[in-house]
Design a protein around this nucleic acid. Structure first.
Lengths: 144, 144
DNA sequence: TCTTTAGTGAAAGTGGTTTTCAGTTTCAGA
DNA sequence: TCTGAAACTGAAAACCACTTTCACTAAAGA
């Protein structure tokens, strides 16, 4: 997975922000990772591309890019705040329980479930957070 | 919401554990709360029932009870680790965006979505984490 | 060039969570 | 009723992810 740099640059510019070398390193590190990365893991990975990068900048960059929609937060069972590239405007993630790989999917017709939940609880459902777990194709192959 | 104490006691006993006064205080505090509580909030709430309760014990108890299935972890947008009673073996939560109230619902037929995601990603889907957001009946009434 | 603002990293600070440790409580068996 | 083992406890210390502060640099526009 890689980023459409010009899109990110434009999104940043629309807010008066810039795509610096450091931000680029953070984006690249996350794009190159096979699974989701925590802030500290991003720091480690991005420093091979930009050694003078500071941890402060990583945290700031992750926040900016998430707000921009270029990244998505993933809740893991071990560490509950890690990041993956967000390619679609609205998408969800599947996490492989064996290798940790994170894949995005867009098919999420929640209407049936939201309706049922609304009826059961009396709530007016407005949003949802969904994350699936399972085995990726490679791990399934390796297991059999 | 209240706990079936004998059930919790039995579940603990099955592992050679006991339902102590402190653990009881933690359970009661969570059962009495209208919304999900973080560890620190549990500590505050439970100390009114058991003043000598220590924070260490709260953390330990939350872990034990979650593992036991008596509590469920909820991921919030602000603090990503808080706890609610788990009444059903498998259930999900709806969080009110206005007042923070957490309600459980059991209607979750994920087959359609899991199938679609499997087809899109090549994963074999085995589990899911779903959390809905919206307005509870009371807040909807108050808003209109 | 000059000015302004975004952006940066090191260091210090913060605060939630875990670990350690020296006890206390509980329970089964003698 | 004792006794020993194991569960259980809270205070204090340690840990560590994350945030704040601050002096500075880089870049864009006038």
């Amino acid at each position: 997975m890689s980023f459409d740099t010009s899109q990110v640059t434009a999104d940043l510019a629309a807010r008066g922000l810039r795509l610096t070398r450091q931000r680029r390193a953070v984006l690249d590190a996350i794009a190159a990772a096979p699974s989701s990365l925590s802030a500290l893991q991003v720091y480690d990975a991005a420093r091979s591309r930009c050694p003078e990068l500071g941890l402060t900048t990583v945290y700031r960059t992750l926040e900016v890019l998430t707000e921009l929609g270029a990244l998505r937060r993933v809740h893991g069972s071990d560490h509950c705040e890690s990041f993956v590239p967000a390619s679609a405007a609205h998408g969800h993630t599947v996490v492989c329980s064996a290798c940790g790989r994170v894949t995005e999917f867009t098919a999420c017709d929640m209407r049936g479930i939201a309706d049922a939940a609304a009826q059961e609880t009396g709530y007016c459902i407005t949003d949802h957070f969904l994350q699936l777990g399972g085995l990726c194709a490679a791990c399934r192959k390796a297991a059999s």
